[in-house]
Amino acid sequence: MKSLKKQRRIQVILLAVVALVLATGLIGYAMRDGINFFRAPSQVIAEPPEPTEVFRMGGLVEEGTLVRDQGETVRFSVTDGGASVPVVYTGVLPDLFAENQGMIGTGRYVDGVFEATEILAKHDETYMPKEVMDALKEQGVYQEPGES
C-alpha cells in the first residue's frame, strides 16, 4: 500500500514537470514575434540585423534631415552621436516629433534604411526613453539636464 502511494506521488510530480515544460515552451513560441530588441544606430551600423528581424532603434532625430514626401511618407536620420541611420516611415507622426528630439522606432533594417512601422516621440521637454538616454550617454553626447 505504501509503495502505491509513493508511485502515485512520483507520477503526479512527473506530470507537473511535463506540464510546466510544455507551458514554458508554448509561451516562448507565442512570444517569439512579440519581443523587440533595442539597438542604437551605432549598433545597427556595426552589426546590421537580418532584413526580416523586427527591432527597436532609438536616438536623436538628426537636424536638417527631416523630409516630408508626398502623402504620409517621411524620411529622416537618427543618430546617437557615433553613427546615423536613415529612416523611412509612412504614417502620421506624433505631435511632439521634431529634429534634435529623442525618438524610438519599431521596424526592419533593409538595404541600409530603417523601415519603421511605428514611431514614438518624447512626451515633454525633459523626457527621453531610457534606452535612448543610455545609448547617448555611452557615446558621450547626452548630459543630464542642469549639467554644464
Rank of each mutant, 00 (worst) to 15 (best):
A40D: 08
A46L: 15
N100S: 15
S84Y: 02
V88C: 00
V61W: 01
E62V: 10
D80E: 06
V113T: 12
L96V: 06
V61S: 01
L14H: 11
A116T: 00
I35M: 13
Y89V: 05
G34L: 10
T79E: 04
I27Y: 10
G91C: 04
V12H: 05
V21A: 13
G107R: 02
S84Q: 11
A83L: 06
V92A: 09
Q70W: 07
L93S: 02
A19D: 03
E47T: 15
F76K: 03
T73C: 07
V87R: 06
V85P: 00
V21H: 01
S42R: 12
S84N: 11
L22T: 15
A19K: 04
D95G: 05
T117C: 06
A16Q: 07
P48I: 12
F55C: 11
S77M: 12
G112S: 11
G28L: 12
T106K: 15
L96C: 02
F76S: 04
V54P: 00
V44E: 04
V88A: 04
P51Q: 11
D80F: 09
N36A: 15
L14C: 12
T24R: 09
L22G: 12
F114H: 03
D80I: 10
R75L: 05
G71D: 02
I104P: 09
V92I: 11
I13L: 15
A19G: 08
V18A: 14
P49F: 13
G82I: 00
S42Y: 08
A83M: 08
L66P: 07
N100K: 15
L14F: 09
E118S: 06
V88P: 00
D80V: 09
G112H: 11
G25V: 08
L22P: 02
F114I: 04
V21M: 08
T52W: 04
D69R: 09
L15I: 07
S42C: 06
G107L: 04
N100M: 14
L60D: 01
V78H: 05
G59V: 10
E50G: 11
E72I: 01
V85W: 02
L26N: 07
D69V: 01
E99Y: 02
V54C: 00
E53Y: 07
E99R: 01
V17A: 15
V12I: 14
E47C: 09
A30Y: 07
G112A: 11
